[in-house]
Write a protein that binds this DNA or RNA. Structure first.
Lengths: 201, 201
DNA sequence: TGTTAAAGTTTCTTCTGTAAACATGGAGGA
DNA sequence: TCCTCCATGTTTACAGAAGAAACTTTAACA
């Protein structure tokens, strides 16, 4: 009740407020029922107000996805920048950071890779995604340079790594990495298989 | 116009017809706007008719996803059952079959792994998915037995393989396996990285 | 033949996205 | 200082969707 009535006619930064509300909804809701009206309602604003800041529903979704990629990138970059005994350990921790991000923000992660977040019609979203994808590339480059990883086809290594990590994240979100099916610590174990292929023999 | 008017009041097998229409829509539409009414319309039936066969929209979606898993399983099983010079070749062909299926049915494949296809509330869907996941397991078991794959932690190998293939499929659908980013034949190259980890050194 | 129930249709309510018209109030020029 | 403009709100309106309820048709069976 503290801010219910004393809100001025003009919000100040409604755009930001709408985004924050939407992100909070995504964080909570695994079951993906996202409506613009609900976002407006929770932000305490009329259902038409969002249209002053976003052309349509999809534009807000793309902005959310963009923020998701930025945050995922930050997560992975932070995980990667610690001290590690080996590049292999660095790789595992960075990959785990991505999967933890997905598990912590399942709705957002799903959105980032859904057809609602169409990267072909939004350069900013496309760039954000590409910047994030560049992180494992750097890690692999460093690993090749210091001799941890085999010096062959880095593009293939990137594709393999990214697909692996993203696939694990999606399966984890869907609850398909059950212990009785894939054993304990399936993520760690799966990454080890990949790393056996990446590392020099 | 041949079947427009002479259709009897009772359809005969509306359930099947609705499913077929929906599958056709999924095959065409990359952009995921699936409405029950549209399905009914295209099937030439009133918008309430589907409710005589499916409790709600989501139940139809889950049935579609179930069929998707069955078909994907058939695809992979068929690909796997050819003659191969090596288990490694068999693995690549089977994985490629999954990715081709995804590229050929992007809408259906997305649905199969979306939150709309909730496996926790539909045992039949869950079983169908598990049966399909069992296929790579058998392949890996055979590979371990004949000495092609390293005899360690088959569950980890399954998780790694499935995540890898599924991740590649999702990235391929999203158009994120561009040649200038990941080189030519990214799928083949990525699988080779994984296989280097799976195969005995 | 008459009854019944499965499988259709029509109609209705509530919700959504989106457009258009209207209201408000802060900032900048007379 | 005051007036006017325009960005940013609100209200109202409309089409299309999910789904419930009541009504209709027709095949099957006693």
């Amino acid at each position: 009740m503290s801010e219910t009535k004393d809100r001025p006619y003009h919000h100040g930064d409604l755009r930001r407020a709408l985004i924050d509300t939407a992100l909070a909804m995504l964080a909570t809701n695994q079951n993906w029922t996202f409506t613009l009206r609900e976002v407006a309602r929770r932000t305490g604003v009329s259902h038409a107000a969002p249209y002053k800041h976003f052309q349509d529903r999809e534009m807000l979704l793309r902005e959310l996805a963009r923020i998701g990629f930025v945050r995922l990138g930050e997560c992975m970059a932070e995980a990667m920048s610690q001290d590690f005994p080996s590049t292999r350990a660095q790789f595992v921790t960075t990959a785990q950071a991505c999967i933890d991000f997905a598990l912590g923000n399942p709705g957002l992660y799903r959105l980032m890779f859904s057809s609602d977040a169409d990267k072909t019609i939004d350069p900013q979203l496309h760039d954000a995604a590409m910047n994030t994808f560049a992180i494992p590339l750097r890690l692999l480059e460093d690993g090749q340079e210091d001799g941890s990883f085999r010096k062959v086809g880095i593009r293939a290594q990137v594709a393999a790594s990214w697909a692996q990590v993203h696939g694990l994240a999606m399966l984890a979100i869907s609850g398909q990495l059950l212990e009785d099916k894939v054993g304990p610590e399936p993520v760690r174990a799966a990454l080890d298989v990949l790393l056996d292929g990446l590392c020099r023999q």
